[in-house]
């Protein structure tokens, strides 16, 4: 499963968001993820992907595709 697919399912499982409404290039807010929800999502990603998402990502990353690209570039924690 691609990082983008895994993120889509994580958002669905964690927050109950309908997968059909999650568009990779749309702003998080378009499917009702506000800044607090995005902060919570980043926290979950660290555990789910064994990475450390940098703090500034919560403000610089605005779409799921940007987030997937960021995660794919991060070193996996051992």
């Amino acid at each position: 499963m691609s990082t983008l697919d895994r993120l889509t399912h994580l958002i669905h499982d964690k927050f109950g968001v309908d997968i059909a409404t999650i568009e990779a290039d749309a702003p998080f807010a378009s499917y009702n993820l506000d800044s607090l929800t995005v902060a919570e999502l980043m926290f979950e990603i660290d555990d789910a992907f064994h990475v450390t998402v940098p703090d500034e990502a919560a403000t610089t990353v605005t779409t799921l595709r940007q987030l997937a690209t960021l995660i794919d570039g991060l070193p996996e924690k051992v």
């Binding site: 927050f15 009702n32 607090l36 919570e40």
Partner: peptide
């Protein structure tokens, strides 16, 4: 609340 509304 919905699960999304439960955040926070």
């Amino acid at each position: 609340l919905t699960r999304l509304q439960q955040v926070g």
